[in-house]
């Protein structure tokens, strides 16, 4: 029990939310239209290289999202999907919800980054409901995961109780089936393959053994696994 608690303490200091966002930002390429979910994904925008051109889409109806407004310049009519006041950048556009999801469903958005409660080794994702306890609703998540070809999940490797969020099978109601391609957690970068979670990178200072312990689903480790370049 004592050792277990020590492990959890170590996990939480490995990579924080900003660290996860920073690593994911490296996946954002020049010319990408990117949809960022609520939570850690929102932070990704802060770490995207400034020498590339990227446009952020928010599914409530804006493309070309900019930073938060200066104090006093907030506009109640210009918000993101997290209901936060935002600004727009040159080249931005506004559109209705059906058009917005046309962009998503029609696969015009290059990269989708979202949070999750659970991910399974077959790429299933759950992030909208805990039966009897919590129902936030799926919002746009079901449309996003069912349509996007390039989906990265940003999340902590384990929940607050220390239980793995990378599972053999999701226990919570699903948001989508077989859709997640990559996962970045506070411990590791993993790819979803037909054979299970493939460990691609370790967070700085984290051992393969620690990642194995924190992963309930099948973990594939091939050769020596490099540290994340952050």
């Amino acid at each position: 029990m004592f050792n277990f608690q020590i492990d959890i303490f170590k996990l939480t200091v490995m990579l924080d939310k900003n660290g996860i966002a920073k690593r994911i930002a490296q996946e954002v390429k020049d010319g990408y239209y990117v949809n960022l979910g609520i939570g850690i994904p929102t932070l990704v925008a802060n770490f995207v290289r400034d020498d590339i051109n990227v446009e952020f889409q928010s599914e409530n109806g804006v493309l070309g999202m900019g930073p938060f407004p200066f104090e006093g310049e907030e506009d109640a009519d210009i918000i993101n999907a997290g209901k936060q006041t935002i600004t727009t950048l040159p080249g931005a556009s506004f559109f209705d919800s059906a058009t917005s999801f046309g962009m998503i469903r029609g696969q015009h958005v290059d990269l989708t980054i979202l949070g999750a409660m659970e991910v399974a080794e077959n790429g299933d994702i759950a992030n909208w409901k805990i039966p009897g306890k919590m129902v936030k609703g799926m919002g746009g998540a079901m449309d996003l995961v069912a349509s996007a070809e390039n989906i990265i999940v940003a999340m902590m490797h384990t929940n607050r109780a220390g239980v793995s969020k990378l599972l053999k099978r999701c226990s919570l109601p699903l948001t989508g089936v077989g859709c997640v391609t990559k996962i970045v957690t506070n411990l590791a970068v993993l790819e979803v393959t037909p054979a299970g979670f493939k460990l691609v990178e370790r967070a700085p200072g984290v051992t393969v053994e620690e990642i194995k312990t924190a992963t309930e689903g099948h973990l594939i480790v091939e050769g020596s696994v490099p540290e994340m370049p952050i």
Partner: peptide
């Protein structure tokens, strides 16, 4: 009223 749910701003 146009209430704002999440008033997020940055420093000048």
């Amino acid at each position: 009223e146009k209430r704002i749910e999440q008033r997020t701003v940055r420093k000048r």
